[in-house]
Each structure stands twice: as C-alpha cells, then as structure tokens.
Amino acid sequence: MKVRIDPEICQGQGRCFSIAPQIFDFDELGNGVVLGDGLLTSETIELARLAQANCPEHAVFIEDSP
C-alpha cells in the first residue's frame, strides 16, 4: 500500500504530519507532504489510516502500490 496527498485538495490543515510525523512532513507553506516514497508497512499502515481519517479536506489517499 502507498499513501499520497493530493496537493490540489490539501489546504494545510496540519493534521497528517501532527498525527504521523513518521509518514508526513510539511512544506514551506505548511501544506502536508509525504516523506520518501510513501510505501506503507504493516507497522505504518494503521497510522496512515488514522491520519487519513482526521483530514478535514479528505486530501490523504491510501492506494494499492503497483
């Protein structure tokens, strides 16, 4: 599984990188960005799902990785 943030939807609410700093960071405007390649492990998937469930803009997507 892979996590991504849609930059068109993200408004910098700041929830993802507060909840899961292992997975997300912020850019110079305070918008969320995914660290590294966004590939999730069995250890990080639940945290990614929690961040997704807290994004008011619904900007976090978790998808099957190719």
Binding site: Q11, Q13, A53, N54, C55, P56
Partner: peptide
C-alpha cells in the same frame, strides 16, 4: 476521540 475531522479552522482555500 481518535477520528476527528472537525472543521474549526474552516475548509477549503480560506483555512
């Protein structure tokens, strides 16, 4: 509360 998509700071471009 673990899941909390509150909108206290607004939504959209005027967050």
């Amino acid at each position: 509360r673990a899941e909390n998509r509150h909108v206290a700071f607004g939504l959209g471009i005027h967050r």
